[in-house]
């Protein structure tokens, strides 16, 4: 059941990214380019996505567990800190350099592998690099 839910959610997410044209980095960069010919479309992607998921999160506050019986994994941290801000700042720079955030990077894999493959590999290297660094920081 869990695996079926995950597959279904993945299909919906990928379809949504494609319909919203977020798998097209030119579209994303046209949104991020305030000084050029600005395309405001992606703001409406956020509006639609947030409005629907806000209902989901509100409903879950009245539930004991999720439908599969698994507990809700509420994020544990609540206060912003420097790691959050520094990480988000680096992520934004990378997003602006490429036109892909992680979801669209995966969504583009079968559509534009010539870009998505090097993007995803380099992203994975960056992730593993940070995780190693963080582990070293904790033990040393």
């Amino acid at each position: 059941m869990k695996n079926l839910i995950a597959l279904g959610a993945g299909l919906l997410f990928g379809a949504g990214l494609y319909v919203a044209m977020m798998a097209d980095p030119n579209k994303v960069l046209a949104f991020l380019d305030l000084a050029g010919a600005w395309d405001p479309s992606l703001a409406l992607v956020m509006v639609g996505a947030i409005a629907v998921s806000a209902v989901g999160f509100a409903v879950s506050r009245r539930m004991q567990t999720s439908f599969s019986g698994q507990a809700f994994a509420w994020p544990t941290l609540s206060k912003p800190d420097l790691k959050l801000i520094g990480g988000a700042a680096l992520f934004g720079i990378g997003w602006g350099m490429t036109g892909y955030c992680p979801g669209p990077g995966f969504a583009a894999l079968a559509i534009n592998p010539a870009e998505a493959l090097p993007y995803l590999l380099a992203m994975a290297v960056g992730m593993v690099f940070w995780d190693r660094l963080a582990v070293r920081g904790q033990t040393g």
Binding site: K2, I5, A6, G8, A9, G10, L12, F13, A15, G16, L17, Y18, V19, A20, M21, M22, K27, A30, A37, D39, P40, S41, L42, A43, L44, V45, M46, V47, G48, A49, I50, A51, V52, S53, V55, G56, F57, V59, S60, M63, T65, S66, F67, S68, Q70, A71, F72, A73, P75
Partner: peptide
């Protein structure tokens, strides 16, 4: 190049996905 309806529909699909993953198995998308 403004595509408001595609953007909104795509956003709604993404929102449905996040809701399904959260209400279905308690995980953040």
């Amino acid at each position: 190049s403004f595509t408001p309806w595609l953007a909104l529909s795509g956003g709604v699909l993404i929102g449905l996905s996040a809701t399904l993953l959260w209400l279905g198995m308690g995980r953040i998308a």
